[in-house]
Design a protein around this nucleic acid. Structure first.
Lengths: 168, 168
DNA sequence: ATATTTTTTCAATAAATTTTGAAAATACAA
DNA sequence: TTGTATTTTCAAAATTTATTGAAAAAATAT
């Protein structure tokens, strides 16, 4: 398989993959393109390679930067701004986990805490099932929350360890 | 907070939560409704409680059954068919993991394996970055795959253990 | 068998999301 | 300053996805 063909297929698949994870196709495709680009590239490069409009590139690169997956890079002597993706997949994964935890899991757990305080006869089977369900999800969510923290921490420690090795 | 209010909020939030996970809002809402229903309920019950059409209920309950999250229940003497959700959140979680692994992760890993075999000069930085990226994702994906298997296995063992306790 | 209830399908419609592109804003240079 | 390059915004258009509802199919009763 030729590189150009493989690239196209990777970008396309990564885009489709993203849609199953609440990420829009184009954002995932831009991310894929940046992941396989050895050097930072510009908005125009992205427009050209993915055949999408300037506005679209602008919005989605902004989102990628907000997610902490992509950096704006200033190249001396260049007028345009460049974009570069974090290449270490572990860092990418932990960053995504960090953000989703913050944006989705934490608010959900907060809500569940509120929903537990309902007034009503706890002998009533509707009330009982509701409380049990909420408690079950909350417990599971709390465990997941902790597990993800461990994962993020592991990545940070590993990263710190690597840094120390370099500078010691 | 009253039960009816709490129910409505749970269903609505669970629906919104689902959309961030590649599940459509209605499917997640039906799932939420079933999770808090102590007894199996019919398509008509779901239509009424969520104010959605018969066709919509039918399609989404079918998907929930396909995902292994909901069972069709036959109640003796009743003409209509009833639906009931698995209430154990750990089972729900492992079932979702099992399905998504099968539907998304496994195919992605297979594709990555193919994309690794590109012909081209490995000194070329484009080729190099591409291969490194693919290898990185594949490695991470493989680890995730194993970790998820461990999680599923843990749930199965726990379940089996509980069964044994009951029957011994 | 026929009638009745219930479920399923799917084309048409509605709703939600994504994309475009041109205008406005910003950044930089001369 | 004024002009030019670049980025950002956002209303309108295009696309994708979800929903409806009525007709067909299937299941059950008489």
């Amino acid at each position: 398989m030729k590189l150009s063909e493989a690239k196209a297929q990777f970008i396309s698949s990564w885009g489709a993959f993203g849609t199953h994870w609440g990420i829009n196709r184009t954002m995932a495709q831009i991310h894929a393109l940046l992941l396989i680009s050895p050097e930072p590239i510009t908005q125009d490069d992205i427009m050209e390679q993915l055949s999408i409009s300037r506005g679209n590139v602008n919005m989605n690169t902004r989102d990628l930067v907000d997610w902490g997956l992509v950096d704006r890079v200033l190249i001396p002597g260049e007028r345009k701004e460049f974009f570069s993706a974090e290449k270490d997949i572990w860092k990418v994964a932990t960053q995504i986990i960090r953000e989703r935890k913050k944006r989705e899991l934490d608010p959900m757990l907060k809500l569940l805490g509120q929903l537990e305080q309902i007034d009503g006869d706890k002998k009533d089977k509707d009330v009982k099932q509701f409380i049990e369900t909420i408690a079950g999800i909350k417990k599971f969510g709390g465990q997941a929350d902790k597990a993800l923290d461990v994962m993020i921490k592991a990545e940070e420690d590993w990263f710190l360890g690597s840094l120390l090795k370099i500078f010691k």
